[in-house]
Amino acid sequence: MRAYLCNAFGPLDTHGPGDLPPPVPADDEVVIEVAAAGVNYYDTLIVQGRYQIRPALPFSPGGEFAGTISSIGAAVEGFHIGQRVLAFNSFGGFAEKARARASQVFPLPDAVSFDQAAAALVAYATAWFALHDRGRLRAGETVLVLGAAGGVGLAAVQIARAAGCTVIAAASTPEKLDACRHAGAAIGINYRQEDLKEAVKSATGGRGADVVIDVVGGAYTEAAVRATAWRGRVLVIGFAAGDIPRIPANLLLLKGCELSGVFWDEFLRREPQACHNQVSAILAGIENGSLAPPIHGRYGIEEAGEALKELAERRATGKLLICPKR
């Protein structure tokens, strides 16, 4: 079968399309004919050997994918061949077929398209877990989203807005801020041109943000902590800026604030039922129109390298998809 392959860990331009044997499900797995697979920042890291997981070579990246079940393991219950599903498996999705543990497969409502589902799983589930679980979000609060024009960022903007919160979007260009406002952000901050702390303080009358979503890292994390309100919650999701920040602990003491890590992959593995409940709520939001995953572009398997580069260079506004039948 056709797949986008990593034959050896290395720079993005060293990988490309190729062939793999069709996957065979283990007893607790299903195999899915992939209609669409989401592209995530960790996909750019895993092929370089810079992610927590290092799959056996060769492999195809792509951790989230939607499609139709084509075969089922002997111990799997509750699924059937031909069923529309959404799945997560850390890697394998940039291919014509991919396998996933049944515990990491989600039934897909007919009203939600494969593209919408593949655009939503990791980004929206990460943002939902961060805001509603780790951040204990309440209506009326102010939410600051760093990297707000990316997949997780736009998801966080929509989810916080739907929860009745005021959203401050921080992004790097006017075009990206326009996308954030379209998604529901009330205020936009260009953090390459403005002092992030001072801009947030000004936007909140000096109070600061109640909740911070941080997918950027680097120097912006400390600035965001300094911009939090009393009892604020800073939710660390990733480090798109490249540098892992070090936060002066006295800031947490002075503000009575919390600094929490958000690792959705591990949440899915350790607390599958709670995770399934959250994904069901997200799919319901897509059905009723309160959530709308923005799609930046669609690529075939032969073009997957272009999608990875576009994401790595932070040129995407919304989600990139790999569509094997394109």
Rank of each mutant, 00 (worst) to 15 (best):
W128L: 08
W128N: 09
F129W: 12
F129S: 11
F129C: 03
F129H: 15
A130K: 09
A130E: 01
A130L: 12
A130Q: 03
A130G: 07
L131R: 02
L131V: 07
H132P: 00
H132T: 10
H132E: 04
D133C: 13
D133K: 15
D133H: 15
D133R: 15
D133I: 15
R134F: 09
R134P: 02
R134D: 04
G135P: 05
G135M: 07
R136L: 10
R136T: 12
R136F: 15
L137E: 01
R138N: 14
R138G: 08
A139S: 14
G140Q: 04
E141G: 12
E141M: 05
E141R: 03
T142Y: 02
V143I: 11
V143S: 09
V143Q: 03
V143D: 14
L144I: 00
L144K: 00
V145D: 12
V145S: 10
V145I: 13
V145N: 01
V145G: 06
V145C: 05
V145P: 13
L146M: 10
L146D: 07
L146F: 11
L146W: 12
L146H: 07
G147E: 04
A148T: 03
A148L: 07
A148C: 11
A148H: 13
A149K: 08
A149R: 11
A149L: 05
A149T: 14
G150T: 09
V152C: 12
G153D: 00
G153T: 07
L154A: 09
L154G: 07
L154K: 12
L154P: 13
A155T: 06
A155V: 04
A155R: 04
A156L: 06
A156T: 09
V157Q: 06
V157C: 11
V157E: 02
V157Y: 09
Q158T: 11
Q158G: 04
I159V: 12
I159Q: 00
I159K: 03
I159A: 00
A160V: 01
A160R: 02
R161T: 11
R161N: 10
R161D: 08
R161H: 12
R161I: 05
A162S: 13
A162F: 03
A162D: 12
A162M: 02
A162V: 03
A162E: 12
A163G: 09
A163E: 14
A163H: 12
A163L: 05
A163R: 04
A163D: 14
G164T: 01
G164P: 10
C165K: 01
C165L: 06
C165M: 01
T166N: 10
T166Q: 13
I168M: 08
I168F: 07
A169V: 03
A169E: 04
A170R: 06
A171F: 01
A171I: 00
A171D: 00
A171G: 14
S172E: 10
S172M: 01
S172F: 07
T173M: 02
T173F: 05
T173I: 10
P174M: 11
P174C: 09
P174F: 09
K176V: 10
K176S: 09
K176M: 12
L177E: 04
L177I: 12
L177F: 06
D178R: 14
D178L: 14
D178N: 15
D178F: 02
A179V: 08
A179H: 10
A179E: 06
A179C: 13
C180E: 03
R181D: 03
R181V: 08
R181K: 14
R181N: 05
R181P: 02
H182P: 03
H182I: 14
